[in-house]
Design a protein around this nucleic acid. Structure first.
Lengths: 219, 219, 219, 219
DNA sequence: TATGAATGAGCTTTCATTCAT
DNA sequence: TATGAATGAAAGCTCATTCAT
């Protein structure tokens, strides 16, 4: 009793099962170490069916990357309210980000660890998504700088570097939160806000850290 | 005549040639995609010699990780003067870090991208090094907090999270600096100091960022 | 409306569609390289239907060979008038042969190239047809020999060899005519008559070619 | 006792063994049906060694074609004395041809049946050889026509068609001789000379066969 | 110290064929 | 009559690893 062995399912269902199995396997083993045999077995189908529907290992991996990237971006997007001030938007976005990565560790591993590790054509796929997020963060920093009436604006490359730093910190904390028992998405987000926002605000108000300025800055 | 094809070199020299070839190949192709054939050819020796000296692909990769980790830690260490204030130490450490990663892109790829991607036993190796750096940063933050007479100290887990964020930001900026023409190690370090130090200082003085700012901001 | 996608056709029609597709695919790709998928798609039906009607790839190929062999023999037969002298019959048969192979290049490829290449049980099928044609030619040669009052008759094995030579020459010329633009069936037939008939006649009158001509020629 | 299992042979020797096994297997089974496993086993080595030395199935097959084509052309060439009259040269060439095909049935099968059946890039390889032989025969026919003081010369395309016919007849007779017990190379060559030379001579002297001319011609 | 010769095991991919409707 | 869903079996190819010298 129960669906001991589900058979003759419609194609769309089978494809989802295969993609789920593929994300899990790729995320845990890596692209090269994952075998199509293992993916097929985990999906509960034969290997030829995987090829019939998903064409090749490379295409399958690419599909996984695209699906997970889309899901992650959608999760972050839906967590953010565009009208709010920049720090509130960032806060909401980070919470959505850490929540999603915590709930989809294999998908996150595919995007963050595997796709970027295995060169073309995969790195390109995931870079597109990362750039989208970097651009979002860049926009927030720029908006905040304008709100702060900072004039002249920060140079583009500075903003770009800051966004890279923020996104990198987020990626690192996602791994930390997933690997450290008891760290919630909210806590990770708070840590990152604490870490980053004061620095960003100082910059926006034209008070960069400087090697020799340290004593004066403390006054 | 002439050392067109050098032969019968002492073991230590041969091992270095092999390790160099291995780091380059692993860094560019990845652990699984790199073949022992390619490494042996790049090293200019026969495959059995690689096995004679380095025993197996797994051990060879582990040796690469250890060598590159040691080199990176040494580079950062040698850039820091223990007596200085915490932010100066951090500034010096970051400069050394970005300089080293820029000068050793393959070694950095092995540590950052490949080793962490391919599970045990490699992740353990590189985690040991990462933890060492995190501990160094943690120490700096703690020292700074004590200098700031902040009491009670930040909880350990907070400090740990902050260190993870800082290291992640550094890793991300290392990639950004390596991939963006014209970004120097010094600039990457300055970006990260600007990004992080103010936030860290605020925390040390017990002034965390908090979401309540939103109400005021809306007025 | 309109028979855009014809469905539920009578069996005989469907079978012809499948055989047409199979002959085309086998002729162009070869027996092994042709896939049942491709044949089914070209025929506009699903694969199970092909199996329902034609049972297996092997049987399908055999059916193709038989259909094409029958068609070729019928074409040659219908071109010949039994009452005429032997050379006129041969002339008519060759014209019919070259006309048919030019009009059915895929069918001819199946018979000449593919069937004989892929061993049992296919070679047997096509050999039966080839033997039928050889027998026809053998009969003509024998009849001509009797007309010429040549006695004793040529030994059977000699006649058989001559027929083999003639058929081989015809096969070669069929390829030549198909591949050389502007060569008509009539021209190919004339070339072969010119090439062969004088030799055959000489043999029938007991005047074989002999190597001894060489001494005289050197004078 | 005896070389039960020969091991560690030099590369050149192993390569010959592999090529021999490949020619045999390809000749008997066909390109697609022959498996690398079978070839390796027949050669007495493991599959990876075949790949190490011969690179791929396609390259292996191409190598076989080239080796056999070179051998066949060399055999025919070495059988012919350039100074002799055309019919003597043809006679010698045919004897060499039938002798070689009888002694190398698998090589002949590779050239005649398999290579031409399996499309590009194989057909091109063997066509180059066939064209070389056709050119040789074409040269002989042309030379004979000039010896016969025939003026004006036969049109090029006629000569070309005749050569195709002669070569096709030879190919067919090679198969016949190989498959019919007791037919010697000399006998096959004689059959073909008898079949072809009278027709060729008539043509060279301007006496083609013509459909209506048959009665007059017999006078 | 150093290498040419060799392989077991495993991978991705394809294909003829069948099941259930 | 007709097909979407599914697979067992095998093929080409690669790779880490070892043997014999």
């Amino acid at each position: 009793m129960g669906a001991v062995k589900s058979k003759r399912l419609p194609r769309a269902v089978r494809e989802q099962q295969m993609m789920d199995a593929a994300v899990q396997t790729f995320g845990q083993r890596g692209y090269r170490a994952a075998s199509m045999d293992e993916i097929a077995e985990l999906a509960g189908v034969s290997k030829p069916l995987v090829y019939l529907y998903l064409n090749s290992k490379e295409e399958l991996f690419t599909s996984c990357i695209q699906r997970e990237a889309k899901a992650l971006v959608a999760a972050v997007r839906s967590g953010v309210e565009p009208g709010l001030p920049a720090d509130r938007q960032l806060w909401a976005g980070l919470r959505a980000f850490f929540t999603h990565t915590a709930e989809n560790p294999d998908g996150w591993a595919v995007l963050h660890r595997q796709a970027r590790t295995h060169g073309e054509p995969f790195a390109t796929e995931v870079m597109a998504m990362r750039d989208e997020i970097v651009a979002f963060v860049t926009g927030l920093i720029g908006a905040a700088a304008r709100e702060a009436h900072h004039d002249p604006a920060l140079p583009d490359r500075d903003v770009s570097g800051l966004a890279q730093a923020l996104v990198g910190a987020a990626e690192s904390l996602a791994g930390w939160a997933n690997d450290t028992p008891g760290v919630s998405a909210k806590e990770a987000a708070a840590t990152l806000m604490n870490f980053s926002w004061a620095g960003l605000e100082n910059l926006m108000h034209g008070r960069p850290w400087a090697p020799r300025a340290q004593v004066a800055a403390r006054v």
